[in-house]
Design a protein around this nucleic acid. Sequence first.
RNA 1: CCAGAGGUGGCGGAGUGGCCAAUCGCAGCAGACUGUAAAUCUGCCGGGUUUUCCCUGCGGAGGUUCGAAUCCUCCCCUCUGGA
Length: 457
Amino acid sequence: MSSFFEVSHRSSRSKARLGEIRTDHGVIKTPSFVAVGTKGTIKTLTPELVREIKTQVAFVNTYHLVTHPGADIIEKVGGIHNYSKLNMPLMSDSGGFQVFSLAQSSRARQHNFSHTSFIQPGVKQSQRKADVRGEEEPLLVKITEDGVKFRSIYDGQLVEFTPEKSMEYQLKIGADINMAFDECTYYPATHEYAEKAMKRTHQWLKRCIQFGAQQRVFSSTSPPKGGSPKSLTQKQLSSLPFTNHQSLSANRYLYGVIQGAIFEDLRKKSAEFVVSQNTPGVAIGGVSVGETKKEMRDQVRWVADYLPKDRPVHLLGVGQIDDIVDLVKYGIDTFDCVEPTRLARMGVLYEVRKQNFLSQRGPFRHAQDKPYPESEKNLFSSPPYEIDITQSIYKNNLEPVDVNCDCYTCSNFAKSYLHHLFKQREILGYTLATIHNLWTMERLFEKIREMIGNNLI
RNA sequence: CCAGAGGUGGCGGAGUGGCCAAUCGCAGCAGACUGUAAAUCUGCCGGGUUUUCCCUGCGGAGGUUCGAAUCCUCCCCUCUGGA
């Protein structure tokens, strides 16, 4: 029987490696991008389109799915694979991130900020002091050692998340890879708070493992013999509605999550602890939550030496193309990020032209970051050259978005048409843009794998 | 020709004596977005290069008033009914 993760090549130049993550719903060649489909859909795409893009793996969110439509209905239909027809390896997030993002939002609302502007570096420190986390009076979220209470953003219902509940929900949802319930520490947090949150996350990880052990899942890096009690027989499967393939995974794999905010000592401590817990995979969380790019990368660099050599490593919430290429070097195998799909819906399309990499928007989004050294200015060392298709300069442009791209969108449509669709808010525009951006990511990762294979990364 | 309604910034459309350079929407321009409350959000949007400052300004020309997009007179134009 093959193992969950197998490394086929290690770069001689860095910690980058080539590997395969094997799940009941298919194999993921790593490094890989993980398309984000929070609510059980990669926004604007049918599963057929997702398949055509050759997306290897997608990411769904427990909090959102539990709130709507509810874990029970998903379980009843045989799991999220069958319910959504995303017939590919799936990862589910624990809901931990929503503790962060929803609390940010509730604070933002309190201060009459948009949730985006609130996490901007320009916001005054004093406005961040009265935090709703911890044991204070919350609007949407309350965190205790036991777990988290959410007020549903959809209907105001109180939702309680504990490590056990997150695991239970995730088992019902049925993704192949599950995240341990963690607390994504906000930025900027004090060392004191970050340590407290980290320890809490560690305790929660133990409880997730414990819960998995009781369910006889997540117990090792190899598939448990005979599957878990949660897996259904073929006969049971065939009686489920809409079923046309194997549905609920027999095998689930738990990833512990490293936290520690922007503090080197905490990050290393957390990495050591999480890796020692021997979960099938390890994830790094709590990054790209408002800190600078340098801080974000440091958080990964600090733990690189502690990461497991024989187990897959996931980086939660990253990233931008330049981040991905640089962080692959630290041994990251999978990356999930909303950027390609969200930006697509905002009319921002990737145009990965070598010559233009350093022009226009410049290599950095954060002015306070230091530029790359000259030696690093290679193909992938700067972010994608993005275009904003809504700009009127594209009104008469009959070229494809990216002349070097062979995606469905670029093969068939001119910038002018996409511009037109976006200006008219035609639904097809969002779909075509999403196809292009996800396709670009997949091709980027193909290139990355090729370069690792040739020891160029 | 008669009757009625109306002419406001690129467009639509509020405002009917001072708090009006004029609500709001669209269009335009700029910015943001990294485990998705996001087909979203933010800012600008008459001119003067910043402004608590000045100029022009609500069809046109006059007038009333301390003060008019708002009231009066005349003119021009549009729309809807009727002949």
